[in-house]
Design a protein around this nucleic acid. Sequence first.
DNA 1: GATGAATGAGGATTCATTCAT
DNA 2: AATGAATGAATCCTCATTCAT
Lengths: 212, 212, 212, 212
Amino acid sequence: MSGLAQDVTVRLTPKGARSRQRILDTAERLFAEKGYAGTTLRDVAAASDLRIPSLYNHFAGKEALYAAVLERGMQPLLEAMSGYLEAGDARPDREQFTAQMFGLLALRPNLPRLVQHEVLDGGTHLSPILRAWFKPALAKAEEVVRAHPGARNWDPDQIPLLVLAFYHLAVGAFTIAPLVQALDREDLLTEDGLPKQLRFFTDVVAALLPEE
Amino acid sequence: MSGLAQDVTVRLTPKGARSRQRILDTAERLFAEKGYAGTTLRDVAAASDLRIPSLYNHFAGKEALYAAVLERGMQPLLEAMSGYLEAGDARPDREQFTAQMFGLLALRPNLPRLVQHEVLDGGTHLSPILRAWFKPALAKAEEVVRAHPGARNWDPDQIPLLVLAFYHLAVGAFTIAPLVQALDREDLLTEDGLPKQLRFFTDVVAALLPEE
Amino acid sequence: MSGLAQDVTVRLTPKGARSRQRILDTAERLFAEKGYAGTTLRDVAAASDLRIPSLYNHFAGKEALYAAVLERGMQPLLEAMSGYLEAGDARPDREQFTAQMFGLLALRPNLPRLVQHEVLDGGTHLSPILRAWFKPALAKAEEVVRAHPGARNWDPDQIPLLVLAFYHLAVGAFTIAPLVQALDREDLLTEDGLPKQLRFFTDVVAALLPEE
Amino acid sequence: MSGLAQDVTVRLTPKGARSRQRILDTAERLFAEKGYAGTTLRDVAAASDLRIPSLYNHFAGKEALYAAVLERGMQPLLEAMSGYLEAGDARPDREQFTAQMFGLLALRPNLPRLVQHEVLDGGTHLSPILRAWFKPALAKAEEVVRAHPGARNWDPDQIPLLVLAFYHLAVGAFTIAPLVQALDREDLLTEDGLPKQLRFFTDVVAALLPEE
DNA sequence: GATGAATGAGGATTCATTCAT
DNA sequence: AATGAATGAATCCTCATTCAT
């Protein structure tokens, strides 16, 4: 009974209780779709079934909302990345990690687009925390790649570019999807498309960094 | 003597024509940097050394200006692509073509960012002409890749993804540059950086589609 | 005690509601004086003691404001007209009705000018509701006139023109007033002028549609 | 031959030669339709098949163009009126004069609307010349009416209102036409409608100012 | 006489934000 | 926590006008 009641409660919970989450969810989607400048608080409020001033009860302003969206969205990615990079000898299997990352992105396909908007803006809105994370992460990733046996195929100078290439491929798979779909091609983010992309990505990585 | 030269120059590029070019140039840069929504006509006018209403003497409005920027910027790329794709047996060497494209992009590094903004928007502002070009171009590119001996390494299903991957890598090299630079890393678009990227891109393509 | 009264007043007309009324009042006057195109929201805002964006808290835009002004202003007129036209045998005395209409117009001398602006524009901004009202009202009015004994003096073909003539005379009395005044003649809308006009109008109607 | 040549010449006359007339014609129509504020030089230029700056070759500005339109349009009316009013004993038959005036208006149905826009604006743009004409004309018209045998039916105070009434009826017939037409009723300004209106107007005048 | 280009002033409207309730 | 009302700043765009050609 309490279970039922709770269910009901959860569903009927006055909007207020979950407003913050609803705002974050809709803002994430809108920022991902239209970028920071292209998203208005009016849109966010409407999609959150609130009036604009209510947004200010939860976030200090548009910038703060954007930062919160970014932070919330990036956290699992950063954690997974950091976990992988800093695992040392206990580093999980590469394919396993790749699958994990793809899984995370598939769960929140807005994130790559959000990130890509940031990239195009030169990281204008990247919080200092995120900026601080990126640099060592890149360095660490290069180190990991360098330690890989397949790195012998590459000029040491090229390792940073290789890391960026993995980034482009992983993120691009998600960002290009809406356009591809708009061109009447198959949707790349469906239940069918995602495993295909994962396998392709894995194959590409294997081709560029062969285990042997 | 210099007076004559100057006169001739002035006559060959009357003020109006020069204004139009200046507007297109600055708009290209601004749209590339900040996207459509993030770019204001105020900025464009200021950077063009004009007052806002003057923009309307040359373009019907913001949308039209954006379309003109896109069209003008894309044309050389599309022509090069079309030339390569439809060359048949006379198709130039792959590396040669890659170098040509990289050269074009290096000349106008705004274009990839412009394109990427469009991609993130799902091609919202893509003129019908451009949209019409994209679909057959993708198909043709897939056909070309499929005809390559290296395609044997790939599942036929993966060819479209491979084409997109090449796109992600080529464009990504340029779009990520400002962020990378902002992270106090080397600039990827300098005279030094570009050849490195070209060689890297060539190496990646070779790894994914070996000639043999 | 006076405090209570004040409180009550404040509560009965909260600030917002008062703003809306103020806007409608000033807009009515300005639209009547200068027409739709000649009236700027800047004027409306200034005369309403508000800043322009505040207008948008109450009306969706200039068109919507105009529509609201028209609708609010026309309602009493339409009701009085409809009441008279559809009263059947209970139709009040003609002079009584005429006096009532003149009274309404005298209370809101902006209305005839508003209406006349609409007429000159061919009813461009007439809401569908108003348009829908006009046609049957004209038809009904013609029927009423036709049933009048004085109608025998007229060709049946002329009845519609006669109805329009009454309209021209009633409205014209108000619209011409500012010009007449500008020509240094007596003001037709003063406490003195109005009864004169009413009597004149009554006399004209009596001359055109004698009771006998 | 010369006749033919002339015809051809007239038709092929370079736009320039007749530009002034074309501008006046289109401006008259547009000012009549949309009023002063609602008419833009852009509209006038487009409808005159010219670019805006060319208008300034013929008129000093918008105000001057409007004044010219008004002056040109009013002149025949004023002359006819003055002729009638000042004819003294030689004054032509009233019906004849009425027909003449209706004829003039029918030829240029824009004029009444133009005038009515002026009236609604309180004569803002009325040139001093026109203003100066109006006052004595009104006085003269009152005098003429007063001298009419039918004036005995009216209180001397009412004569000014009677004159205005004639004005309202004459002008209203033309200004209401577009709205009436928009309400799916017969067009009052057709070859059929105009004689009807003329007869009606004559009948009304006869009823209000019987010859006897 | 005609016009492309330029522009100051102003048009309606939107935006992010604040505040009283 | 929610919101109606208010607003400074800015958005895109239009207008009438000028000037060089």
